[in-house]
Design a protein around this nucleic acid. Structure first.
Lengths: 350, 350
DNA sequence: CCGATTGGAGATAGCGCTATCTTTGTTGAT
DNA sequence: ATCAACAAAGATAGCGCTATCTCCAATCGG
């Protein structure tokens, strides 16, 4: 009669046992001597369950190694226990620090982390958002503020809490955790000026929106100084790497021999420049001061040690995840923008 | 009558429209003028659907921005479109390369990647496997071969394809992709011997099973040589870092001043040693040769350039993911163990 | 001591999709 | 021209869980 094996009231495998061999809630409930719905409530920690019953259910669950089927749970409750995290790059070490901090906050709360890599493309980000919304996640973490209007529309329509990472937004109702990219660029400019440098350059590879902001902050401060030229702006589309940093460094010094200070958009490039300089015996900071961005672990150990901007990567992940959890729990009173600041770590290279 | 809003045959919101506002298969089917099951078949590319109908369904789906509910799909079909990937560490750059390659293979096939970090603990790995099995993934990728017996049992019982990464197994029916850790350690020993080094040391931090194997391979070759002492074995439990590499380097040279060759279990430590040596004007390789492991991007650029073992991290991820896809499609004829080899890159530091 | 109230447990009915069976339409062989 | 064989579309019945409603017993005030 019944097309599925478990349907009929006669014969067939025992009801409440999954095809996969894993126990179902019905089986668990039978063993615990309660109804399935009570078992469900007990496992989810719903308050209105007798502690004794709840204990019996938990014990039965432990004995059976019962793990709820998340698909059934999601389908019935119309929301999953997942959080989608979209980052622009996986290969970049920076986002890994952030990702790990996010993991450490969300996993202990039983939340699954879905990671999407949008390769710095807002269009790809939009596709990923559309796709991840189908999973009915409890929340979404986004990197940067450059979403397409459609992405913003999808998110608003979904009603799912969203926290933006790495940049700060003044937009109302938009929760963001990060620091001012623009000011960090400005801080580097001030630092180099204080060191007596006057002929400056900004060097970037694969300029992303945040690196652009840093460059603009750098420019802004220099524009406010008399007797200081606007900085040379060298930007190439290739992905950044240590090797590329060395190349760009040489190319820059050849074209502008009087340059005495360079702000690289990240530490990889700056490290490459320092290695190349060491090899060519170009004195640093004697001939030219070098400043990086991100303060990678290595930067404090090279020779000369690299001046850099220390960014709160892990803290951004942690704070963003915590804020998201708060929003998921309906707590949205807090300040929408969390500025975690940055720190200019002055070392030997400048 | 009906507890849910959409239940009754009279009134209520239009059937086939999710609470979330996103369209359902029923709605899509109505617009395309076919039955829901046909729409389902068309979207999944089941062959026995008229091409015209399939086209109509696809067009309607595009117009509605329809995305299937994965929870419902998983529940009905008893398997998800996810692959679980377990790695021992997220903070380690190495696994990121592998992870990215896995992503690049699986995402275009519409497979979700669930990432679990088991922090080098087989017990934690077991918990994660138990948890991820509830998601009914299509496949699982594991790092290393040190699973608990329970983990192995769970995997075997599930019948889900598994591929092991980073190490090679001779066990029948066990698919693995990697290279011989033991031989890579042996290769470093041979290299240092060929360079005339006789007083060697192996230095490791947070010794994981693979680093241990490398050390054993290193030892094995040295044990086969007359007039060569067994290597000094320095292993500390802290996580490895550039700073720690410098420290261990100094500690080792102080305790064993005649050491003339060091094999560090990874490049981070080796780089730290080289920076420290540069700072203390200890000539490398003059006084002591240094060899690392992994060939991080920076190693080729430092001064002196670091000799290292180049590991096929990204290739392991790619090959493992491809193998998993083949297994998922029922193709299990291929050679179970894929040895991708390694390469000793001899540079200035040795 | 009784009716109103409350809190905890259970019964019921789906969530949105797909596996399976059934029906319908179409072709080929006789 | 008739019937078997096949292919394609649809009807049906869940997958395993939770939201909601219903019920029952214990509690309370008057």
């Amino acid at each position: 009669m019944s097309p599925r094996s478990s349907g009929g009231s006669s014969g067939g495998p025992p009801r409440g046992s999954r095809a996969s061999g894993r126990p179902t809630l019905a089986e668990l409930a039978r063993i615990a001597g309660v109804s399935p719905i009570t078992a469900s409530r007990a496992l989810r920690g719903v308050a209105s369950v007798d502690p004794d019953l709840a204990k019996r259910v938990r014990e039965a669950a432990a004995a059976l190694n019962y793990v709820a089927n998340p698909a059934a749970r999601t389908l019935a409750s119309a929301h999953s226990e997942a959080v989608a995290v979209l980052i622009p790059s996986l290969s970049n070490l920076l986002f890994i620090d952030t990702l790990e901090a996010i993991h450490d906050v969300l996993m202990p709360r039983g939340l699954e982390v879905l990671i999407g890599n949008f390769h710095y493309s807002p269009e790809e980000e939009e596709k990923l958002v559309r796709n991840y919304l189908a999973y009915q996640p409890r929340g979404i973490l986004l990197t940067g503020l450059e979403q397409t209007p459609a992405t913003r529309g999808l998110l608003a329509a979904s009603g799912i809490p969203v926290v933006y990472m790495m940049e700060l937004s003044r937009e109302a109702g938009l929760h963001s955790v990060g620091f001012s990219q623009e000011e960090s660029g400005a801080a580097v400019a001030s630092h180099l000026l204080a060191r007596g440098r006057r002929n400056l350059a900004y060097v970037a590879a694969q300029l992303d929106p945040r690196a652009l902001e840093r460059g603009l902050g750098f420019q802004r401060v220099l524009a406010g100084e008399r007797e200081v030229r606007p900085p040379v702006w060298l930007s190439v589309p290739e992905p950044s790497s240590v090797a590329l940093g060395g190349e760009l460094f040489l190319r820059l010094l050849e074209a502008y021999p009087d340059i005495d200070g360079i702000f690289f958009c990240n530490d990889d490039l700056a490290q490459g420049a320092i290695f190349e300089a060491t090899r060519r015996q170009i004195p640093i900071p004697g001939r030219v001061a070098v400043v990086g961005f991100n303060d990678l672990p290595l930067s404090a150990h090279m020779a000369p040690r690299l001046t850099s901007i220390r960014t709160p990567r892990a803290k951004v992940g942690e704070a963003a995840a915590r804020r998201l959890v708060a929003l998921m729990e309906g707590d949205c009173r807090a300040e929408p923008a969390i500025d975690l600041g940055f720190e200019l770590v002055a070392r030997e290279s400048s």
